[in-house]
């Protein structure tokens, strides 16, 4: 089932002369884990905001084309309506904190209160989200007393608790240590396996290659490519679009080692090891 359909989306922020998104079209199936990559200012964050209706309803500006989220055309529905289907985790977790709650636990409850979820169900969902993101030990702390990484986990937990069918995450692991990033990517992958559709913008290409079903490459507000990681990362022109392939791909490209029987280079550690055939094998 097509969960997200974007057709010829064009968008310009107020006071800006340039299109932030220029004729963007793609379709996403339910349960897909989609990675969005591209240099800064290529349109990744704007695209994320367009999935939840903040573009155009909050930012205003000039808007053309269509975004259809699970049958709802974003332009014709309020952010409140759309928020029942899609949750977004902002790039800077600080932006996401309500400022009206005294503890992490209550902060995660905020979205649920607004959805009118029953108390018993709220408790279930909050505990689930706290455990999934491994922040249960901090549940009584003030949201502002957390480290950057803990705050980021809380921001993700507060969206997951709302059980959206689609989750959009804008660089959700930028402040986490490597182990923490790995945990968060795994948690998100689990959700996607349960049928939740995931759109994630990120610069950590090794993680994107490992976890995403497909990669959307943006540059200058346009879609350059939308394909499986090995196709996108095997392109010769990534540098021109301001992105780097995963380390493993770059090494294999330089050594001209393709995956057996294909025209693609390895994108993960395991694939690279297989192709480079080390002494350890």
């Amino acid at each position: 089932m097509k969960k997200i359909i974007v057709e010829n989306l064009k968008y310009k922020y107020p006071l800006s002369e340039k299109l932030a998104l220029n004729n963007v079209s793609f379709e996403i199936e339910q349960g897909e884990f989609i990675g969005v990559i591209g240099r800064n200012l290529s349109g990744k964050s704007t695209l994320c905001q367009a999935m939840v209706g903040l573009v155009p309803h909050f930012y205003k500006g000039a808007y053309g084309g269509k975004v259809i989220i699970d049958g709802l055309e974003v332009r014709n529905y309020s952010i409140a309506d759309i928020s029942l289907k899609v949750g977004i985790v902002f790039q800077n977790p600080f932006t996401q904190i309500t400022g009206s709650k005294m503890t992490v636990y209550e902060e995660i409850a905020f979205g649920l209160e607004n959805l009118g979820i029953s108390r018993a169900e709220m408790i279930n969902r909050i505990d689930f989200a706290l455990n999934l993101l491994k922040i249960a030990p901090f549940k009584e702390r003030s949201p502002f007393d957390l480290s950057g990484g803990q705050m980021q986990r809380m921001a993700i937990a507060s969206i997951i608790a709302m059980k959206p069918e689609i989750i959009v995450l804008d660089e959700p692991t930028s402040q986490l240590d490597p182990e923490g990033s790995e945990e968060v990517f795994r948690a998100i992958q689990d959700l996607s396996k349960q049928g939740i559709t995931v759109i994630l913008a990120e610069h950590k290409m090794e993680k994107m290659a490992e976890f995403c079903n497909r990669i959307l490459l943006l540059d200058d507000g346009k879609v350059v490519d939308f394909d499986v990681p090995e196709k996108v990362f095997s392109r010769d022109d990534l540098g021109e679009h301001g992105v780097n392939a995963p380390v493993y791909t770059r090494v294999c490209k330089a050594l001209n080692k393709k995956k057996a029987g294909t025209n693609d280079y390895p994108v993960t550690l395991e694939e690279a090891v297989r192709v480079l055939g080390g002494m350890g094998l």
Binding site: R39, E171, Q175, H203, N244
Partner: peptide
């Protein structure tokens, strides 16, 4: 390097 792309 938080939030930095390749160029950054």
């Amino acid at each position: 390097t938080i939030a930095q792309d390749y160029q950054g």
